[in-house]
Nucleic acid binder design. Structure first.
Lengths: 197, 197
DNA sequence: ACGACGATGTTAGAACCAATAACATCGGTA
DNA sequence: TACCGATGTTATTGGTTCTAACATCGTCGT
């Protein structure tokens, strides 16, 4: 229907979506502006109207991914009583599910964007995502998400699901021939870390 | 002393070392064959006598890193009674120490090498490294490193130190403003995971 | 209505990189 | 000693990022 127009309409969003698909297919390190431009149907110079450089485009993909992951975690937690072990476990499972479902974007989000600190938006979105877990823990223990003990417990849980995500998407679990029931693994770790040692 | 010779002597090793330093400085994704060649003092075509392509050079750097990390873990474990909680904890700590001391190489080793499975040497070396932990657990529980329950427990511990390594080197812990006593963190996790649930 | 102008796109090109081919040099061995 | 294979170099091709100069469009003021 839509004929080839000189102006695209919403090139910025189209580039992010094209880049997202390419990152998912080949990994962020193999993304080229040429490919993204081609996929969006524009010349290779067009993206620079919206993104200062390739890293800026990747940052946008990462930001969008962070938001989607946060939504998934939020939804997973909401299916259980606030502050319950089941809620915490479900959030962790959702984290890993996102990682394995979108390994390219996940790795970009957490490990291939040059020090999140450089982008205030990424940093902020990251805090919001971590906050999904923290608020559950805070409710559980009747404190504030800013309490150091709660943040430390949050780190323990995050550390575990983060590590498992990487081992899974980098195929270490299968390479090391380790039997794994993911749900059981997450539930077990959640239980151990929620204990008052 | 040594004048500029046409032949290098041990170019292969020199290239790996040069690449290692560059990876550590700029990250594997920014390594160029040009830079590595320049650092080794040869032309940009010379490396191709020893490495099929850039990925092959990076694989060599990763392999060398895996071996060094394995040695560090072995040594850390040997400082404690075989199969003790302290030994397991020390191995985990050594794992993280390596990651934070050589973040560029560490990320290359575990997450930026095209699916270890493709390189039999990397896969083998990875198994040996995981074996350092497994043999401690096997001694502890009086079983074989191949027993599924032992491998699963190994995965739990690996998952944790792996996750913490990534969160640390990608600056998430500091970005999220989480207080952290690394030794305490590792000891705590070890204790929790060595418990019989 | 309509025309100017800013926003958004294109084409051309400079600087860089990976990888290969053709050529040069060295050193060990018959 | 003279050859020849191993190890380097130079030159080239095709691809990359990013910028500059130019083209087109649509919207807003008159």
């Amino acid at each position: 229907m839509k004929k080839a127009r000189y102006h695209h309409g919403d090139l910025r969003a189209a580039l992010i979506e094209a880049a997202r698909l390419l990152v998912e297919q080949n990994g962020a390190e193999r993304l080229t502006m040429s490919d993204a431009s081609r996929a969006a149907g524009v010349s290779t110079a067009a993206p620079y109207r919206y993104f200062h450089d390739k890293d800026a485009l990747l940052d946008a993909v990462a930001l969008e991914g962070l938001e989607r992951q946060r939504q998934a975690m939020l939804q997973a937690g909401a299916a259980h009583p606030l502050g319950s072990e089941a809620a915490v476990s479900a959030i962790g499972h959702a984290y890993i599910d996102f990682a394995t479902a979108e390994r390219g974007v996940f790795k970009l989000m957490f490990s291939q964007t040059r020090t999140h600190g450089r982008s205030p938006e990424l940093l902020q979105k990251g805090k919001e995502t971590f906050g999904v877990l923290l608020s559950q823990l805070a409710h559980r223990e009747g404190g504030s998400p800013n309490d150091p003990p709660i943040r430390t417990r949050g780190l323990r849980l995050w550390t575990f699901v983060h590590g498992l995500s990487f081992l899974l998407i980098d195929d270490k679990v299968s390479a090391m021939e380790i039997p794994l029931d993911l749900s059981e693994m997450v539930a077990d770790a959640t239980r151990r870390f929620l204990q008052d040692s």
